[in-house]
């Protein structure tokens, strides 16, 4: 198993957000976390990336315990993350945003093993980003920012790529382009963990999905099973 999250409990301040959450992602697999706003999807992702410490439970990545590792160590071990708000550095150009990833990955085993040109991987997923390299982050549109965020995470040569609401606020034609990109990433042998609020959208990409509600996993299975489950549909509709 690539990623194993076992029975984690996470708090935001005094608020107990995640209650005994367990999920897993296998190699070459696309897994979706589906839930309404405030259900706990982003909290699960922040627990996995290390941005939010877990109070109890265990997180293992590539057979190594990473529960108490800081975010930068997790990133170096191959967890890439494209957050909901893109996370592009506004005053740096797209090339400079990608340059940081390439520089960081060159210091890792993954960088040493390859030719070091991890930007090529990023351009394979989104060739459009090549046209944007000289633009500053603050001069990009919302969709372009999301593309660059995914490209930048890909330039880290991750084993697992986490996408938080990657399709939110995009035009339908662009969403289609992003779904193609997810399939390209999967074909490259990279696993994906995708947080989505739209079950139908998640079902078109995911091999498996988890439905999150009030900080707990209330469903786990194939997308078709979720779509056929009345209880799941009621939970997601509110």
């Amino acid at each position: 198993m690539l990623l194993e999250v076992k029975d984690i409990n996470t708090y935001r301040g005094p608020a107990h957000i995640l209650r005994g959450v367990s999920i897993s992602v296998d190699t070459d697999e696309v897994v979706a976390l589906v839930g309404r706003n405030g259900a706990g999807r982003t909290t699960i992702i922040e627990s996995v990336t290390g941005l939010l410490p877990v109070r109890s439970g265990q997180i293992r990545f590539r057979d190594e315990e990473i529960t108490s590792l800081p975010p930068h160590r997790r990133a170096k071990r191959g967890i890439g993350y494209a957050p909901e708000n893109s996370g592009i550095f506004p005053e740096l150009t797209v090339a400079e945003n990608l340059m940081i990833s390439r520089w960081l990955v060159q210091k890792t085993e993954r960088g040493a093993a390859g030719d070091g040109n991890t930007e090529a991987r990023a351009f394979t997923v989104f060739p459009e980003v090549r046209q944007l390299v000289d633009r500053q982050g603050q001069n990009l549109s919302g969709g372009q920012k999301k593309m660059v965020a995914i490209a930048r995470a890909m330039a880290l040569a991750p084993y697992l790529l986490i996408l938080d609401e990657a399709f939110e606020g995009l035009a339908p034609a662009v969403v289609k382009r992003f779904r193609e990109a997810v399939m390209t990433i999967k074909a490259m042998g990279i696993s994906l963990l995708i947080a989505e609020s739209n079950l139908v959208s998640a079902a078109t990409m995911a091999d498996r999905l988890y439905v999150v509600d009030r900080g707990e996993i209330v469903f786990h299975g194939k997308p078709q099973q979720a779509l056929a489950d009345d209880q799941v549909m009621r939970t997601l509709r509110g």
Partner: peptide
């Protein structure tokens, strides 16, 4: 790249952290 990493930290340290800085 070191200088660009500093600017990334200046702009948003949380984003910089999950990149591995």
């Amino acid at each position: 790249p070191f200088g660009k990493a500093l600017q990334a930290i200046r702009d948003n340290e949380v984003r910089a952290r999950f990149l591995g800085l």
